[in-house]
Design a protein around this nucleic acid. Structure first.
Length: 714
DNA sequence: CGGCTCATAAACAGTT
DNA sequence: AAACTGTTTATGAGCC
C-alpha cells in the first residue's frame, strides 16, 4: 500500500507537468472529504505508523530548509528526475500502516494530556517551524522573482523551448517546495505525536500529501502560494479548512476523545494569529499520561539506546526534549525503530500465514466469519452442530497448544472437518454403540494428527461406557483451560469429573461452577446457559446425590449409577413433596428412595464421600490409581448390600471414613433421586447411600475437617 | 420411524 | 427484592 503511494509520488511528476492527472482527482476527493468534515474541528486520531512512513521525505525537506540549499536537484532539466525528497525508502514504502493494535490505540489515546512542559515544547516547536517556513517563504520569493525575471527575458528575447522547459522545471520546484512545507508540517505533527501530545484518528485517511503533490497544476500552485504567502502561518495552512491546501486531516481536535486536550482551532487559524493552538485541559490526570508514555518507564528513558535515568516525569520530558529532539540522530533512530517494527510485522505476517496454512490443512475455514456472537454460538451448538468451533477458537486452541503443550482438540473440529475425512482414524469420542476404550485407542492427547479423528459432532465422551473422560481430560487439561473449545464431554461427565477431582469427592453447586470455569476456557466465556444445564443435570441425572448440610448443600456422585448411565427420564413422576418420602419408600421398593429426610434416620450412616468412594471402587477405571482400596471396597460392598435390602439402621461409623469436610457434620439430608420402577434396575446395587447422624460415635461438635480420608482406613 | 440421550430453555418454588 | 439453588417440564437435535 505504501509502496504504491511512494511509487506514485515518484512517478507523477509528468502528471504535474501536464496539469492534470489522477492525483488531481485524488486531491479533490480529499478536499471534498475534508470539507465535509470541516464543520466541526477535525480530529486527529491515532495513525502513528501510517505517518511514520513520511519521515524520510520529511527529513529531506527539513534539511533543505535548514541548510537553505537551493534545490540543486530540482533545477534539473529532466522532467523525470526523482527528487531525493520525494523518494520514499523501501523501508518506508513497505510499512503497513493499518497495523495498529488496540493496545497502541489505547496508549496513544491515553497520551493526550498536555502538561505545561509539553505545551511549552509544543509552542517552541511551533515557533521553530514558523521560522523555518519564513525562511522557506523568503527563498520562494527569491525564486519567484528570478522566475519572473526569466520569463520576461524569454518574452523579450524569444527564448528557445529549452528555456521554457526550465520554467516548467521551476514550477515543479515550487510545487516540490510546497510539498516539502507540507511534509514539514506533518513532521511537526508527527513529532508531537511521538511525544504523546497528539494522536491521529485511526479512521482518518493519511495525510493528503501525495494527492496534493500529484495533482497540482501551476494555477493551483499559484493559488496555493498566495495562500501560503498570505497572512497564514505555517500552522494556518495546516489547519485552514478553507484553504485549497486543505490538510484538515491533520488538524487536531479535542472532541474525539474525552481526554484529548489539544485543540487546533481551524477558525482561529484563519485570522493570521501566530498561535493556532487552543489548549484545553480536562480531567485527565498527569499521572495517567506519565504512566502511559511509551518512552518512559521505571524512571528510565526508553528511547532506543538511551536508558537515561530520569527521576520523575518532568525531568524525563526535559531529557526527551534535550536529547531526543528533532534532529538527524533522532530521526535516524526512529528510522531504525521503524525497521524493527517492520521486521516484527513481517515476522508476524509470516506466522499468520503459517497459521493459516495449518488451519487450512486442518480443514478449518479460517476465513469463515463467526456465525453468531458467542452467546448464540453457545445457544445453538447443542441443537445444530454443537461441537463446531470457529477459527478464532482454533486459533485460541493453538495458543493453548503453545501454553499447554497440547494440541488441538477433536472438539474443535467442525462437522465439515469430520465429514471431510470420514475415513480417517477411529473416532475419538465414544458413543454407546461405538465405544472406544483408551486401551485400544491409546491416549487421546489432542494432536494435529488426531484432529482428523473426529466423529460425529454430537458424540461425546461419557464414562458410563467405560471410557473415562479423565484420560482425555487429563491429557488435554491445559488445552481446555486455554482454548475456548467446548469439551467433548457431557455435562454429567464433567460434573462427575469435577466432583471426583475434589479432595472430598463432593462439591457445592458453586464449587462445581468454579471447577468448570477453572478448567475450561469455554465456560469462562459462555456462561449464559451452562450453569442452568449443570443444575438440570444435577437434578436430572440420578448419579448425582445432593447432601444437605446445616448450611447449604453439596453434591456427590454415585458412580455406580453413573456407570449405568441413566438419565432420569422425562415423563417420570415428579418428585413428591418431602412429606411423602417415607410413604413412598414404604410403598415402593427399597431401592426407590426419594428425598429422604435423614433426620428420621432411615438411612444408613454412610458418608457421601464414602458413597463416592464406593462408587468409584465399582468403576474399575477409577480404581486403578488412588482409589483402589480393597478394604474400603469390601466395606462399601457390604454397605451396598445392606442398603440393597430394606432401609434400616446401620451402625457403621461413617465418620471414620468421612473426608475432610464431613457430610456427617450436622444434620444431613440426602436427597436421593427416585429411580423408575424398572425391574432391570431392581436387581442392581442400590444407586445411593445415605447419611445419617445417628451413629453412636458421631459427634456433632467434632471437627472432621482434617479427618483422614477413607483411604486411610486401610 | 421410534426410542434414547443430551442440551437447552423456561417456569416455578424454596432458600439465602 | 434479588440472587441463588434446585426441580420439573418441554422441546429439539443427533444417534442408533
Amino acid at each position: 500500500m505504501m509502496q504504491e503511494s511512494g511509487t506514485e509520488t515518484r512517478s507523477n511528476n509528468s502528471a504535474i507537468q501536464n496539469g492534470a492527472g489522477p492525483g488531481k482527482h485524488l486531491l479533490e476527493c480529499t478536499l471534498r472529504e475534508s470539507r465535509s468534515n470541516g464543520e466541526t474541528p477535525l480530529e486527529v486520531g491515532a495513525a502513528e505508523l501510517a505517518h511514520l512512513q513520511q519521515q524520510q521525505a520529511l527529513q529531506a525537506a527539513r534539511q533543505i530548509l535548514i541548510n537553505q540549499q537551493p534545490l540543486c536537484g530540482i533545477k534539473t532539466h529532466k522532467r523525470n528526475d526523482k527528487q531525493p525528497s520525494l523518494q520514499v525508502p523501501i523501508s518506508v514504502a513497505m510499512m503497513t500502516p493499518q497495523v495498529i493494535t488496540p493496545q497502541q490505540m489505547q496508549q496513544i489515546l491515553q497520551q493526550q494530556v498536555l502538561t505545561p512542559q509539553q505545551l511549552q515544547v509544543l509552542l517552541q516547536q511551533q515557533q521553530a517551524l514558523m521560522l523555518q517556513q519564513q525562511q522557506l517563504q523568503e527563498f520562494y520569493k527569491k525564486q519567484q522573482e528570478q522566475l519572473q525575471l526569466q520569463l520576461l527575458q524569454q518574452q523579450h528575447a524569444g527564448k528557445q523551448p529549452k528555456e521554457q522547459q526550465q520554467v516548467a522545471t521551476q514550477q515543479l520546484a515550487f510545487q516540490q517546495q510546497l510539498l516539502q512545507m507540507q511534509q514539514l508540517q506533518q513532521q511537526h505533527l508527527l513529532t508531537l505525536q511521538r511525544q504523546g501530545l497528539l494522536s491521529i484518528q485511526p479512521g482518518q485517511p493519511t495525510l493528503p500529501l501525495q494527492p496534493f503533490a500529484q495533482g497540482m497544476i501551476p494555477a493551483e500552485l499559484q493559488q496555493l502560494w498566495k495562500e501560503v504567502t498570505g497572512s497564514h502561518t505555517a500552522d494556518d495552512v495546516v489547519c485552514n479548512n478553507h484553504s485549497t491546501l486543505d490538510l484538515s486531516t491533520t488538524c487536531i481536535s479535542s472532541t474525539a476523545h474525552p481526554k484529548t486536550s489539544l485543540l487546533l482551532n481551524s477558525q482561529a487559524s484563519t485570522n493570521g494569529q501566530a498561535s493556532v493552538l487552543s489548549l484545553k485541559r480536562e480531567s485527565s490526570s498527569h499521572e495517567e499520561y506519565t504512566q502511559n508514555h511509551s518512552l518512559y518507564g521505571h524512571g528510565v528513558c526508553k528511547w532506543p539506546g538511551c536508558e537515561a535515568i530520569c527521576d520523575d516525569f518532568p525531568s524525563f520530558l526535559k531529557h526527551l526534549n534535550n536529547e531526543h529532539a528533532l534532529d538527524d540522530r533522532s530521526t535516524a533512530q526512529c528510522r531504525v525503530q521503524m525497521q524493527v517494527v517492520q521486521q516484527l510485522e513481517l515476522q508476524l505476517s509470516k506466522d499468520k500465514e503459517r497459521l493459516q496454512a495449518m488451519m487450512t490443512h486442518l480443514h478449518v475455514k479460517s476465513t469463515e466469519p463467526k456465525a453468531s456472537p458467542q452467546p448464540q454460538l453457545c445457544t445453538t451448538f447443542g441443537r445444530e452442530n454443537g461441537w463446531i468451533c470457529n477459527s478464532q477458537q482454533l486459533e485460541e486452541g493453538f495458543t493453548g497448544i503453545l501454553k499447554g503443550l497440547n494440541l488441538v482438540s477433536s472438539a474443535t473440529l467442525s462437522k465439515t472437518a469430520s465429514e471431510a475425512s470420514p475415513q480417517s482414524l477411529p473416532h475419538t469420542p465414544t458413543t454407546p454403540t461405538a465405544p472406544l476404550t483408551p486401551i485400544t485407542q491409546g491416549p487421546s492427547v489432542i494432536t494435529t494428527t488426531s484432529i482428523h479423528n473426529v466423529g460425529p459432532i454430537r458424540r461425546r465422551y461419557s464414562d458410563k461406557y467405560n471410557v473415562p473422560i479423565s484420560s482425555d481430560f487429563a491429557q488435554n487439561q491445559e488445552f481446555y483451560k486455554n482454548a475456548e473449545v467446548r469439551p467433548p464431554f457431557t455435562y454429567a461427565s464433567l460434573i462427575r469429573q469435577g466432583i471426583l477431582e475434589s479432595p472430598e469427592k463432593q462439591l457445592t453447586l458453586n464449587e462445581i461452577y468454579n471447577w468448570f470455569t477453572r478448567q475450561f476456557a469455554y465456560f469462562r466465556r459462555n456462561a449464559a446457559t451452562w450453569k442452568g444445564a449443570i443444575r438440570t443435570n444435577l437434578s436430572l441425572h440420578k448419579c448425582f446425590i445432593r447432601v444437605e448440610e446445616e448450611y447449604g448443600s453439596f453434591w456427590t456422585v454415585d458412580d455406580e449409577a453413573f456407570k449405568r448411565g441413566r438419565h432420569i427420564h422425562r415423563g417420570r413422576p415428579r418428585k413428591p413433596c418431602p412429606d411423602e418420602h417415607f410413604d413412598e419408600l414404604v410403598a415402593h421398593s427399597p431401592s426407590l428412595i426419594k428425598n429422604i429426610q435423614t433426620s428420621h434416620a432411615y438411612c444408613s450412616p454412610l458418608s457421601a464421600a464414602l458413597q463416592a468412594s464406593m462408587a468409584e471402587n465399582s468403576l474399575p477405571l477409577y480404581t486403578t490409581a488412588s482409589m483402589g482400596n480393597p478394604a474400603l471396597n469390601s466395606l462399601a460392598n457390604a454397605m451396598r448390600e445392606d442398603l440393597n435390602g430394606v432401609m434400616e439402621h446401620t451402625n457403621s461409623n461413617g465418620s471414620d471414613s468421612s473426608p475432610g469436610r464431613s457430610p456427617m457434620q450436622g444434620m444431613h439430608q440426602v436427597h436421593v433421586k427416585e429411580e423408575p420402577l424398572d425391574p432391570d434396575e431392581n436387581e442392581g446395587p442400590l444407586s445411593l447411600v445415605t447419611t445419617a447422624n445417628h451413629s453412636p460415635d458421631f459427634d456433632p461438635d467434632r471437627d472432621y475437617e482434617d479427618e483422614p480420608v477413607n483411604e486411610d482406613m486401610e
